[in-house]
C-alpha cells in the first residue's frame, strides 16, 4: 500500500484510468498522482512540488485538467481519469509530441507530460490560440530547462498545422 502503513484505514475506490476501471483500497491521504504512479503503475504522471505550483502532475479528470497532487484518489471514485499514457496511446497528441521534439521543447523531460496535457486541453478548447493565450494557459506549468520559448512555439506550430497551415 503506497504512502500508508499497516494500521492505516483504507477506502475502496474505483477509478476509470485511461478507459479501464481500476479498483483499489487506498488511504484517504493518497493523492491521485501517487495513486496513478504507485497503484496503476503509470509513471508518466510526475510528482514535483506536491503543492500545486509546478504542474508536472497534470492529468485529466472527467475531461478537464487537474493537479494530480491536489486531488485525492478517494475524491475520484467513479471518475474518468486520463494520463499522458492514455493521451499518447489515443494518438491524438502525436503531432504535438512530434512538434515538442522538432522544436527541442524539452531537455530533461520532467515537466513534459504536464505541458502536453495542458497544451492538449488548450488546443481542444481553442484551435487558434495567440502566443499570449498559449503562455496564459501554460502559466501553471514550470519548465526549468527550456525557458518556455520552444514550448510556446511547439504548441503554436501544432495549432497552425492542425488548421492546415504549413509550418
Amino acid at each position: 500500500m503506497s504512502g500508508g502503513n499497516a494500521m492505516e484505514k483504507t477506502y475502496p475506490v474505483t477509478v476509470i484510468v485511461n478507459g479501464t476501471p481500476m479498483t483499489a483500497l487506498v488511504p484517504a491521504r493518497l493523492t491521485l498522482a501517487d495513486f496513478l504512479r504507485n497503484e496503476a503503475e503509470l509513471t508518466g504522471t510526475h510528482v514535483g512540488c506536491e503543492h500545486g505550483v509546478c504542474g508536472a502532475c497534470t492529468v485529466r479528470v472527467d475531461g478537464r485538467t487537474v493537479r494530480g497532487c491536489l486531488t485525492l484518489a478517494v475524491q475520484c471514485d467513479g471518475a474518468e481519469v486520463e494520463t499522458i499514457e492514455g493521451a499518447t496511446e489515443d494518438g491524438r497528441i502525436k503531432d504535438l509530441q512530434d512538434a515538442f521534439i522538432e522544436r527541442n521543447a524539452l531537455q530533461c523531460g520532467f515537466c513534459t507530460p504536464g505541458f502536453l496535457m495542458a497544451a492538449d486541453e488548450l488546443l481542444n478548447d481553442n484551435p487558434s490560440p495567440t502566443r499570449e493565450e498559449i503562455r496564459e494557459h501554460l502559466s501553471g506549468n514550470y519548465c526549468r530547462c527550456t525557458g518556455y520559448q520552444a514550448i510556446v512555439e511547439a504548441v503554436e506550430m501544432t495549432a497552425a498545422r492542425r488548421r492546415g497551415e504549413a509550418q
Binding site: 500545486g52 504542474g55 497534470t58 479528470v61 478537464r64 485538467t65 487537474v66 493537479r67 491536489l70 486531488t71 495542458a118 486541453e121 494557459h137 502559466s139 501553471g140
Partner: peptide
Amino acid sequence: IAHEAIRNR
C-alpha cells in the same frame, strides 16, 4: 485565480 487546472477543480 491561479491556473486553468486549479480553476477546473
